[in-house]
Amino acid sequence: MSFDLSIIWQNLPDILAGFWTTCWLWAVSTAGGIVLGFLVAVARRYGGRLIASVLGVYVAIMRGTPFLVQIFLLYYGGPFIGISLTETPTGLIGLVIYGAAYFSEVFRAGFEAVPVGHIEAAECVGLTRWQTVRRILLPEMALLVLPPSVNIAVILIKETAVLSTITVPELTMVTSVIGSQYYAFVEALTLLALFYWFLVEVTGRAGRWAEAKLSRYRFAN
């Protein structure tokens, strides 16, 4: 078995472009997933029974089926119901919808975990509703939802690789193409694995660092 890294150097610009695509797809889908997930969680909590059950079905479907099948349905099925998008927007939308379902569950648990006594205490000392949300509910929740949110962000990094199946030019796609052009799969895929490993490790460490920073806001249970 030969292990020839010169192929990687020759194609470095393409690889870096793929890496960049992966990174921004990840960043945008995580941000989008957090925003949409938060809205879903709020709507499920305060939106009445009908909205809650519809959104409950949405979350169950997203969490109960493989991302690959969801993305195929969106990409190949989309044109039949008038959604004709190119690969990259399809992939991005798919990731956001998928991530939002998971994030909404995190926020839901977060809402439920803030002790009612804290909210009541805030009311007793005369805080307005908005002040209670801004000063008590959200900070306490932020701490609770941080570790599981980092987890989901890590899952989303890894799901971006699945977008290569619908030919989104992200890192896995680019690297696989290079691998097959030069018949150097092992080199290309090893490098690819190391890239993702690095990205996931950095994210995990950043998450733990942020957790340690925020821990001074921790409340006793």
Binding site: I157, V162, T172, F185, V186, L189, L192, V200, G204
Partner: peptide
């Protein structure tokens, strides 16, 4: 644990699929 949790399963599958024949 760190490696297999840090690399997308798709990449792991492709790597194993190509690595095993390369190793004979």
């Amino acid at each position: 644990v760190s490696f297999f949790r840090g690399v997308p399963l798709l990449v792991q599958l492709l790597l194993i699929y190509h690595l095993m024949p390369a190793l004979g």
